[in-house]
Nucleic acid binder design. Structure first.
Length: 469
RNA sequence: GGUAGUGUAGCCAAGUGGUAAGGCAACGGUCUGCAAAACCGUGAUCGCCGGUUCGACUCCGGUUACUACCUCCA
């Protein structure tokens, strides 16, 4: 049984999909007006891991996500740079793919852009108006928040409290067009020339921020979906408004399980684009050549808890991941010197730890605990590879298990072996010969030389072991 | 002010009503021609106070610190 923490109930609940064996999940994607930062990456990685674990457990996952490619920030950026909104969106949508690819984040089953579903959005808004949940006002269309029973329950906010709290801030020009300050825009009037807009029954305009997700979830998944994910800051107002719109339109429950990931903090303060204290994934990847380390780092904390990001956190993660990689590499090396057959005891521990891994993941995707199970296998691997006699099947099963479990975290490429150049190959051969004739001076020189060409060698009872630096 | 959450060894991070997983770093040792890798060993009484209990870090009350949300934000 898999337990999922539901923001709606603030509890871990037994996960039951609507359709046996299938999962429909929707995860909010980025607004493509800039490179994504580590916080955005965390969200993408967290839900990719959720997806991968479901798939590991045999579920078929339908993963839908969006790019918000039309909104104020994009329009501002486009105007500032003197290019079209589309050009801005294209640039950063492409960057998103480029940056997330090395992190081994699986592409969404469907990734749609807001601008691709404009007709659906217009239909949706028309419906809301037809049902009395929305009204037109000077070209804008607003949702009557108070008409929707239970508005705000996801954020556990009392509507009256919210109104009181927000009173001092609600003096923007939108407010005058609203029947009630708590109403939110589902369609925005756009009178300006040269700014992206679409014809609609309410004149030229563009979608409100929240509407695209409601539309896509319904269009590409169904009226009721299993899981909806995003950063915790989206619980209000974004997801709150999605619930209101979607349920107002369909009369059905929108989402069974609301999952929200915690933030990445910098010096214990939220990393955000508006605070300017962010590190973009783009920069991080270009200064740090090992994307799997980033992925690892973001797996060391349970997804709902905050992660504090500092300079040395990446380095520490690198060292930790290195332990797993080394064990994997050393297992591979022992394959050649292994005997046929199985050890028996090794298999027992593998089974135990696989179970421990699954138990941890079943518990609301407790990746730190799952990782602990992997480290138990690493310890096993390290002690086992020290044995004089090792069995081939056991080594192989260790390799397969570690690899399989790590890939739930999206961490592949544990084996840094790769093709050698002729020079590297020759140097390695020469060193083997030097050692055979006990010419340690020469062998040490060759070891240094190899290091210079990117190959690290180690000597073991089974001979010379090497790997790429 | 309201809401949600967090405070566990130098660092990261789990966990449970019965005397604290795992990892990194550090130190000592083993192995090694040297090295590397690995292995073995060494560390915390769980923000603070009080209560419940045979017993709490784990439950309850209070307190304090930090963070986030309360209509830009993953």
């Amino acid at each position: 049984m898999i337990y999922v923490y539901n923001t709606l109930s603030l509890k871990k609940e037994v996960f039951k999909p609507i359709t046996t064996g299938k999962i429909n999940m929707y995860v909010c994607g980025p607004t493509v007006y800039n490179y994504i930062h580590i916080g955005n990456a965390r969200s993408a990685i967290a839900f990719d891991t959720v997806r991968r674990y479901f798939e590991y457990r045999g579920y078929e996952v339908n993963y839908v996500s969006n790019f918000t490619d039309v909104d104020d920030k994009i329009i501002n950026r486009a105007q500032k740079e003197g290019i079209s909104e589309l050009a801005v969106a294209n640039k950063y949508a492409e960057a998103f793919h480029e940056d997330t690819l090395p992190l081994n984040i699986k592409p969404a089953t469907i990734r749609s852009r807001a601008t691709e579903v404009i007709p659906d959005i217009i239909d949706f808004v028309k419906d809301l108006i037809g049902k009395g949940y929305a009204y037109e006002s000077e070209g804008d269309v607003y949702f009557r928040a108070k008409k929707f029973k239970g508005y705000g329950i996801l954020a556990h906010q009392d509507l009256a409290e919210m109104e009181a709290n927000a009173a001092g801030r609600l003096n923007d020009d939108e407010t005058v067009r609203k029947e009630d300050p708590v109403d939110f825009a589902v369609w925005k009037n756009e009178p300006r020339e040269g700014v992206i807009s679409w014809e609609s029954p309410w004149g030229k305009g563009r979608p409100g921020w929240h509407i695209e997700c409601s539309v896509m979830a319904q269009k590409y998944l169904s009226n009721t979906i299993d899981i909806h994910g995003g950063g915790i800051d989206l619980a209000f107002p974004h997801h709150t408004n999605e619930i209101a719109q979607s349920e107002a339109r369909t009369g059905q429950k929108f989402v069974n399980y609301w999952m929200h990931n915690g933030f990445v903090n910098v010096n214990n303060e939220k990393m955000s684009k508006s605070l300017g204290n962010f590190t973009t994934l783009h920069d991080l990847l270009s200064t740090y050549d090992d994307p799997m380390v980033i992925r690892y780092l973001l797996s060391t904390t349970q997804y709902r808890r905050p992660i504090n990001y500092e300079n040395n956190t990446v380095e520490q993660a690198r060292l930790e991941l290195e332990r797993i990689r080394t064990a994997y590499r050393n297992l591979l090396f022992r394959l050649d010197s292994s005997e046929l057959g199985s050890d028996g005891k090794v298999e027992v521990i593998i089974e135990e730890q696989t179970k421990a891994f699954e138990q941890a993941m079943n518990d609301d995707f407790n990746t730190p605990n799952a990782l602990a199970a992997i480290f138990e296998l690493v310890s096993l691997a390290n002690t086992y590879t020290k044995s004089n006699v090792v069995k081939r099947n056991s080594i192989q099963e260790l390799l397969e298990t570690i690899s399989k479990l790590m890939s739930v975290f999206g961490i592949d490429g544990l084996d840094s072996h790769a093709d050698l150049t002729t020079e590297q190959r020759e140097l390695l051969d020469m060193r083997v010969k030097a050692r055979q004739s006990h010419d340690f001076t020469k062998s040490d020189l060759l070891r240094n030389r190899l290091k210079e060409v990117g190959i690290l060698v180690e000597d073991t009872p089974q001979g010379q072991r090497w790997y790429k630096a």
